[in-house]
Write a protein that binds this DNA or RNA. Structure first.
Lengths: 243, 243
DNA sequence: CGCTAGGTTGAGGTACGTCAAGCTAAGTGG
DNA sequence: CCACTTAGCTTGACGTACCTCAACCTAGCG
C-alpha cells in the first residue's frame, strides 16, 4: 500500500496541469507516514498548531466548526487525493477541526519536507498552492448555496460536485459513488436540521434524480440534477492549462 | 499618490510577519498602474481571464456570484491593502466577478511582475500565498454564519471582522469606520432580503451595540457585539509569527 | 432478544421572504 | 425657488422554507 499511495494526488494535479518526470518523482519520494483512523475521529483539533500536513488517501473528512450552542457547521469536505491542511503550513494555527466522516486512510507529511519541495520544485509548489485556491473557490460556491439556494437545490449541486471530484481520483464512475456518511453529517454540510435534510433528500429521490441507499449514491439523471441545482463545474478548475 | 500607494499592503503583511528591507523594497518597486472606478463598476468579470492582479488602495470591493434567478450573493469583501485576485494568477479563469461597492482607488500589477517576485523573494511570496489562505479562513467563518447563525448575530460578527481588518490598515479607529455601502449590498453579503437586513440592523441599533448612519459605523459596545455574534478573531491570523 | 444509531414521519412554531406602500434626502430641470 | 424624479430606507401584512419536538420505524449488533 505504501507504493502508489500518492497516486490520487498525482491524478488530481494532472487534471489541471502537466507534471514533469522530476516533479512526479519528487512527489513519489515524499516521506509519508501511513495512518488510518475510524469514522468519527478528530484528526486535527481546532486551535492546534500541526507540524505536518495530511494527504487523504481514502474516505471522507470534513472541516468542522462548532458554535457555543453545540451546533456544528461543516465548511469543507475532502476526498481521496486532497492535501488537507496544506494551509496549516502557511497559517500555523487551525481555525477549525478536521474530522473523519468515514474510516479513513491517510498519510502525514512533515512541513519540513514540504518546504524542501517548495525550494526545489517551484512549479510543483505553485500547483499545490493552486489546490488551496481551488478549495477557496469551492467554499465560495458553498457560500452562494447557503445564502441563496433552497435546500434541495443546494443538495443537488453538492452531489454534482462530489461526483466530479471523486471521478478525477477514480473513486466514482458510472454515475455512482460511495458516500457512507450519516444524514446528520450531510445536514451539517448544508446548514440544515436533520429532519429537513431528510425531506430534501426525499424530494430529490422523488424527482428520480438520485438515490442514496446503503451508503452509495446513484445519479439517475445528471442533466436534471445539474440543472436543478444550477451546477456549473467551472469553479472546480478541472481543465488542463499549460504552465 | 504613487509613492506609498502600497503602504496598506505592507501594513497588512507586517501584521503577520516581519518584512526584510529587501522584501519591502521589492514591494515598493512593483510596477503599479494606478486606477480609480466609481461605485457599482464591475472591475473583473466572471469567466474572464485576467493578466493582472488588483491591489485595492481605498474603498470596498466585493466578490459576487449571480444566480439564474438574478439574485446575487457576495462571497467576500475586500478592503484597502487586500490583494484581490492574487489567486487569478493561479486559477486563470474567474469563477466570480469583482464589483466596486464604493468609489475605489486601486493599482493593477501584471502577473508577470508577480511571478518575477515569486522567483526572487520566496519568503515574500509565501506571505502573499498566506493572504489567500486567510481569505479562505474568512470564507469558512462566513459559511458558519450563513449555515448556523441568526441574521443579527451574523451581522454582528461581520461588523467585528470589518473593524479589525480596517484597523490594521489604518482605516478604522476609535470604534468607528466608514462603510458607505447600501443595505442591498449588505443583504447580498448576509444572504438575506433587504427587508430582513433592515430589521436585523434595527435590532443591533436597538441593543445599543452599533449604529450606522451617513455611511459610518459606530461600535458603541464592542464586548456585547463580539459576544452576541460569537466573534473570535483567531481566524483573521492577526498575530505576528516568525518565519 | 433487547439495545442503539440512524432514518422517517407528523404537528406546530419561527425566522425568514415577498409584496406593497410610504418616507426621506439628494439631484435635476425649469 | 420649486416641481419632479430617483435611490435608498422603513414599515406592515402575509406567506413559506425551515426548525423543533416527539414519536415511531428499521437494521445491525452484542
Amino acid at each position: 500500500m505504501r507504493d502508489g499511495a500518492i497516486l490520487p494526488l498525482i491524478r488530481s494535479l494532472e487534471k489541471r496541469d502537466v507534471l514533469t518526470d522530476p516533479e512526479r518523482a519528487a512527489l513519489e519520494q515524499l516521506p509519508l507516514r501511513m495512518r488510518e483512523v475510524a469514522a468519527g475521529t478528530e484528526m486535527v483539533g481546532e486551535a492546534s498548531e500541526p507540524l505536518e500536513s495530511i494527504l487523504l488517501l481514502d474516505g471522507y473528512t470534513a472541516r468542522a466548526s462548532h458554535l457555543r450552542t453545540g451546533e456544528r457547521q461543516i465548511t469543507g469536505l475532502n476526498v481521496a487525493g486532497d492535501f488537507i491542511d496544506l494551509h496549516s503550513l502557511l497559517l500555523k494555527v487551525m481555525d477549525h477541526s478536521v474530522i473523519a466522516l468515514t474510516d479513513c486512510e491517510f498519510a502525514t507529511v512533515e512541513h519540513k519536507a514540504l518546504r524542501a519541495l517548495s525550494a526545489l520544485h517551484p512549479h510543483l509548489w505553485r500547483m499545490l498552492m493552486t489546490t488551496i485556491a481551488i478549495d477557496a473557490a469551492i467554499q465560495r460556491i458553498w457560500i452562494v448555496d447557503l445564502g441563496r439556494n433552497m435546500a434541495a437545490r443546494h443538495m443537488a449541486r453538492l452531489m454534482c460536485e462530489l461526483y466530479l471530484r471523486l471521478e478525477v481520483v477514480g473513486k466514482a464512475r458510472d454515475m455512482a459513488f460511495r458516500l457512507p456518511i450519516t444524514q446528520m453529517a450531510l445536514a451539517d454540510v448544508l446548514g440544515l436540521s436533520i429532519v429537513h435534510t431528510n425531506r430534501s433528500l426525499q424530494q430529490l429521490r422523488a424527482s428520480g434524480a438520485i438515490d442514496w441507499q446503503g451508503g452509495t449514491v446513484h445519479i439517475h439523471d445528471w442533466d436534471y440534477l445539474a440543472d436543478f441545482g444550477g451546477f456549473d463545474p467551472l469553479y472546480l478548475n478541472m481543465v488542463k492549462r499549460t504552465r
